[in-house]
Design a protein around this nucleic acid. Structure first.
Length: 488
DNA sequence: TCTGGGGTCCTGAGGCGA
DNA sequence: TCTGTCGCCTCAGGACCC
């Protein structure tokens, strides 16, 4: 392990929720919860104000609503988050060519490789400056951890949250780790945590004391060796800038279990088409087709088939997925279906006939996508208005959808630069003066050139209105009008 | 009461050829 | 020719991460 704390871990604070608060002044200081708003949605991120009520990531949305009924509930706007994330990643790449993004809101940076830091003080300075730069460029806060390894840098940034910086001094690592719970270590989730607890091991120090042989006996070879090394603060994993994609998959959870076998078959075909579009979009093909089925009782099974050569042919993937489905009993109903492709290559080995058939099928698939996009943004000729998405009104200007339902849409007219919360007005959903709009930049610095906003047409539509967060007043709560229905 | 979506990695069973 | 074994591959499931 290197002796200088020049591995940096950046973690943006409550990223999705913070972006929403920055773009909607009326939500600042309020409980904001971002996630799937359907009956089976879960929380993606929530603001620190929402965490006070016990809400956290991955919690079922229904539970979050019970804990924080007056919070603002918004659907994620991934395109906007991606745009902001690119701004942040650009700042990281200015520090070093060795940047390893873990997600939209997290990354490792090897400061030493970029010459941005070489000792304790230069590392601290680089981290401090980075946080200031991020705030200036995006208006958002991020927490920084600095240490001599990835594991320790990540633990440090966790301790720094929110809006802080923690540097782990070389030589103090083991003492720092010893009292922490085993769940602190990457790779220890609920199952491994339980396993260790049953063996009387609850802290990292106890893991180190237990010894390598005992951990291997308890957790298996790979896991045991890796976790023992981590418990001793040994982590030699390098920061890796480019990671190869190993698989591509798509899956859908349905609002209501599907019992109809024909419908299940149809959904699998659609998922296969979507998966192939993603595959082709990435310029990839793959050999192994995987079908995933989650049944009514939440039991999950996968079936896979390996072809003789890699394919990106929608017809081939559809047929393989259909064959795999033949071996699965779906009579009790299914809540989730998924199709994936692994064993990836950046070339194909299809014969000419298959290629030709594929192109034909692909044309149909493209038509199908456009059709679905229309379905998602319009219902019986009327536009849909996802909660939180930006809109523009010819008279009142820029705003965002606070809620919709019963043929009405409620809009709050404000922009990221607004000093005070904007006024709220309600319109007919078909009002010709109201149209979806691109998100505005969060700061005057704006988005980088070429970065797009969110078209606002490709998101799942919520079926709930949102509350501004303050007064406990619910706006336009929709009754069952078909908006939340399962696609298809 | 309920539990998303998109990934990665590991393990163990079983088939198969050398 | 039969049998054991080793290594590799495929398949299914589980755990974990964000």
């Amino acid at each position: 392990m290197r002796r200088t704390p020049t591995i940096l871990h950046l973690d943006m604070d409550a990223f999705f929720a913070s972006v929403e608060q920055a773009s909607k002044p009326s939500l600042r200081g309020k409980a904001v919860i971002v996630g799937g708003l359907g009956p089976r949605g879960v929380v993606a991120t929530c603001s620190y104000e929402a965490r006070v009520f016990g809400v956290h990531s991955a919690m079922p949305m229904a539970q979050a609503r019970r804990l924080a009924p007056n919070a603002a509930y918004l659907v994620p706007r991934f395109q906007l988050y991606r745009t902001i994330s690119e701004q942040v990643m650009a700042l990281l790449r200015a520090l070093s060519p060795l940047v390893e993004p873990l997600s939209l809101d997290e990354a490792f940076v090897d400061l030493e490789a970029g010459g941005a830091a070489w000792d304790l003080e230069s590392a601290r300075l680089a981290g401090t400056k980075l946080r200031a730069d991020i705030r200036e460029a995006t208006g958002l806060t991020g927490s920084v951890g600095l240490a001599a390894s990835k594991m320790l840098a990540k633990i440090a940034s966790e301790q720094a949250k929110p809006d802080g910086l923690v540097l782990i001094d070389p030589g103090t690592e083991r003492a720092l780790l010893a009292p922490l719970t085993v769940r602190t270590l990457p790779g220890v989730g609920p199952a491994t945590g339980d396993h260790l607890r049953r063996a009387g091991i609850t802290t990292v120090g106890e893991m180190a004391e237990a010894g390598e042989d005992e951990l291997v006996r308890l957790l298996g070879k790979a896991h045991g060796h890796a976790l023992y090394a981590m418990a001793l603060a040994h982590d030699e994993r390098p920061v890796v800038a480019e990671r190869e994609t190993k698989s591509v998959s798509v899956e859908d959870t349905y609002d209501v279990d599907i019992h109809d076998r024909v419908r299940v078959e149809l959904e699998v075909q659609r998922l296969a088409d979507r998966c192939v579009r993603r595959l082709r979009g990435a310029g990839l093909s793959g050999r192994t087709i995987v079908l995933k089925v989650r049944r009514y009782d939440f039991s999950t099974l996968t079936r896979s088939e390996t072809l003789r050569g890699p394919t990106d042919d929608p017809a081939v993937v559809r047929e393989a997925a259909a064959r795999l489905l033949d071996s699965v009993d779906t009579t009790g109903g299914v809540r989730l279906l998924g199709v994936g492709v692994s064993g990836l290559a950046d070339f194909t080995q299809e014969d000419l006939f298959a290629q030709a058939a594929g192109e034909l099928a692909d044309e149909h698939a493209e038509e199908h996508v456009e059709e679905r996009d229309r379905e998602e943004t319009e219902v019986q000729g009327e536009r849909r208005w996802p909660a939180g998405h930006d809109v523009r009104h010819t008279e009142y200007g820029h705003g965002w959808v606070q809620g919709s339902g019963l043929g009405r849409v409620t809009v709050r007219f404000e922009t990221p630069g607004s000093e005070v919360a904007g006024r709220v007005r309600t319109f007919r959903v078909g009002d010709p003066e109201l149209e979806p709009a691109e998100p505005l930049p969060l700061t005057e610095a704006g988005f980088p050139v070429g970065a797009g906003g969110d078209a606002g047409v490709d998101q799942r539509v919520d079926d709930e209105a949102v509350d501004g967060g303050g007064g406990g007043r619910r706006v336009d709560r929709r009754e069952g009008d078909g908006f939340g229905a399962v696609r298809g």
